[in-house]
């Protein structure tokens, strides 16, 4: 649940999601679930020319399994806190 909690702290902020088909969408993070499915608002598609079908879409749901990366701004992340949380999670018996 580490990354689920992590993404929850990012709700309301702008992120850029790169999908495995190279489509890149930036937008405001609205919600996330335990599969790391993502909902974005006010979306903008990078390379709009290549993806004309996205023109009329303003908000979208992205299935977690098709995400390659989520690119974030540095100041949204408390790296010390994140490392501590990771160590704690790693210690938990599976």
């Amino acid at each position: 649940m580490l990354f689920y909690s992590f993404f929850n702290t990012l709700i309301g902020h702008s992120v850029t999601v790169e999908l495995k088909n190279d489509l890149t969408i930036s937008g405001k993070l609205v919600s996330v679930d335990q599969f790391l499915n993502i909902k974005l608002n006010d979306i903008k598609v990078l390379d709009q020319q290549k993806y004309p079908h996205m023109d009329s879409v303003k908000s979208c749901f992205i299935r977690g399994s098709v995400v390659r990366y989520v690119s974030l701004s540095k100041d949204l992340v408390d790296t010390a806190l994140l490392q501590d949380a990771t160590r704690r999670e790693a210690q938990q018996p599976k």
Binding site: N21, P52, D55, V57, K58, S59, I62, R63
Partner: peptide, 23 residues
Amino acid sequence: RGENVVLLGEVDKDKEQDGYPNL
């Protein structure tokens, strides 16, 4: 089937159009 879904987009009524004028 869910595994074949990449994304769902909400269609903005203001920007909605019949087809693609540039294509």
